[in-house]
């Protein structure tokens, strides 16, 4: 079912058995088993605060194999006694040849990994990463992209926006990003005309307050780009269910909606 191959494709065996229903989310790229298996040392080089609850952590990973926007990695911390904690995190930075990647992490209440990043970590610290992982949410920059995220769900989508910008891609890209208020909007200074913020609790003067609705989607779906939108939805399960339902009701084909849920 893998329909797009890239240079990082290590294997892509076609599935001989095809289920009666074509899968709603055909794979985008195959993932190299080599890069997914090996733990690499990543050195923290910079910390940037984004909002009161989220910060960006820049990591030097000299042997990073490269990623596509939308992919994630697994990150591991190890305590003195050998105890380890590992989590999946989306990659925020666009693919480049800097030997660095960036993660943007919420400070999760009681979170042992995000808690370490937000209260202990400083430049020079070393952690371990493996990846990039999972090709289904990747966007190679080929199809018109309709991106819908909430909270830190915007992180993998921002990698796509940055990639689109860095490469000067002509393919249409739009971002709808939901946040509680302007102070909670991650990457607020970076957005351009491609982005529409949605504020659920408080908003600047003249901007309505309320959750994502069909009215937000209608003008974007009405653009009808050549080849149609590939929709990428990322956020909590509650948000993902809400946004994906709105998309289906607005006529977006189910097999053109990719969903990444927190957890």
């Amino acid at each position: 079912m893998t329909e797009t191959s890239t240079s990082q494709t290590a294997f892509a065996p076609p599935t001989a058995f095809t289920p009666p229903t074509r899968f709603a989310v055909p794979g985008r790229i195959a993932v190299s088993s080599g890069t997914a298996t090996v733990w690499q040392t990543a050195t923290l080089t910079e910390i940037r605060r984004e909002t009161p609850h989220a910060a960006t952590f820049r990591l030097a990973v000299p042997a990073w194999a490269g990623h596509l926007p939308g992919q994630h990695l697994m990150l591991r911390l190890t305590a003195q006694d050998g105890y380890t904690a590992q989590r999946h995190y989306s990659i925020a930075s666009a693919p480049d040849d800097s030997g660095h990647i960036e993660l943007t992490l919420d400070h999760v209440a009681g979170g042992e990994v995000s808690g370490w990043f937000h209260t202990v970590a400083e430049p020079g610290d070393e952690v371990e990463v493996r990846g990039p992982l999972s090709g289904f949410f990747a966007w190679p920059g080929d199809r018109p992209a309709l991106l819908i995220g909430a909270g830190s769900g915007v992180v993998p989508l921002m990698s796509m926006v940055r990639h689109h910008r860095a490469r000067g891609l002509a393919v249409p890209l739009r971002l709808l990003v939901s946040a509680r208020g302007p102070e909670e909007l991650i990457y607020a200074r970076e957005y351009g005309t491609e982005t529409t913020p949605v504020f659920t609790r408080s908003a600047p003067a003249g901007v309505p307050v309320g959750r994502l609705t069909a009215a937000h989607l209608a003008p974007l779906l009405a653009e009808r780009p050549t080849g149609g939108w590939e929709a990428y939805v990322c956020g909590s399960n509650g948000f993902a269910e809400h946004a994906s339902r709105l998309l289906v009701e607005a006529g977006q084909p189910v097999d053109r909606i990719r969903i990444e849920r927190f957890g």
């Binding site: 040392t41 911390l77 190890t78 305590a79 003195q80 006694d81 050998g82 105890y83 380890t84 904690a85 042992e112 370490w116 202990v120 970590a121 610290d125 070393e126 952690v127 371990e128």
Partner: peptide, 12 residues
């Protein structure tokens, strides 16, 4: 083993 400076983790 690559110990992460200052990481203790959840109670065992």
């Amino acid at each position: 083993m690559n110990v992460t400076r200052g990481f203790t983790g959840r109670p065992r």
